[in-house]
Design a protein around this nucleic acid. Sequence first.
DNA 1: ATCGTTTATTTGACTTGTTCCAGAAAAGGC
DNA 2: GCCTTTTCTGGAACAAGTCAAATAAACGAT
Lengths: 141, 141
Amino acid sequence: MLTIDAAALLREASLRVTSSRVAVLRMVADNPHADTDTIAKAVRRELGSVSTQAIYDVLRALTDAGLARRIEPAGSPARFETRVGDNHHHLVCRSCGAIADVGRAVGEAPCLDAGDPHGFVLDEAEVTYWGTCPDCLARDE
Amino acid sequence: MLTIDAAALLREASLRVTSSRVAVLRMVADNPHADTDTIAKAVRRELGSVSTQAIYDVLRALTDAGLARRIEPAGSPARFETRVGDNHHHLVCRSCGAIADVGRAVGEAPCLDAGDPHGFVLDEAEVTYWGTCPDCLARDE
DNA sequence: ATCGTTTATTTGACTTGTTCCAGAAAAGGC
DNA sequence: GCCTTTTCTGGAACAAGTCAAATAAACGAT
């Protein structure tokens, strides 16, 4: 397990330090792109019993505090990662749903200049690359 | 109502021509980005009673046949549009969920060259621009 | 250290979006 | 027109996520 200091991160974000939050935060840090259910199972394995509602609440709190990011590719339940602030993007496998990160080349402007933004004020350009992951390619031989 | 020849489009795609399909296809053509429920209500207004299942089946058939595209921004139910094949992208309002199209400048390559694709074979780059729509901007004054 | 206020968590019912099932009905090729 | 294939109906099931009220825990002040 990566030894991130979850408690310190929580305190910095002025969130109370509870065992659920520490466990969830560590879990998300160690398993990027895990979905809620996977996170819940892992946390329960560590702490015993934790309510589903608590998992949702904690994930929401972490997301609101900027400690986690929620991503939600079409057709997939919500997934979470702690890599925030660097505006990287995601590769999603159409056949198994696997997700990988892809960092944007440094200094390269995102395609944030949408042609005609129709009066919208934009704050983020999210890119999802769809394709097939190496495992599925190999299996479908 | 736009007078697209729904029946002809269906036949070209070798789909049987049924009243539900014609109605749904026309509805989607006239109301881009409508969600399933909105489509169902509109179709029922026109045809009387149509089962929810039929709506889902028809939308799936249209999508599979390439007559419609399904989009699904995070936090929103599935939405459909008939503008297919030109790989345009979407502006999504964070506060009301409104969606607008934004065409990519012609000739401009998409950001399909993901830095390191980790062995994925990509077939599409989907860009979602997040922001606030003009209406919500005005209301939040 | 302990108390009390504030904030988390539990519990359980509920909503929403979507899919599955099995039988009845309709479309199109012959 | 008949027959096969496909679609539609209605109802039930399902998964993800939310709401609300009661209980429990964190942590700053005593």
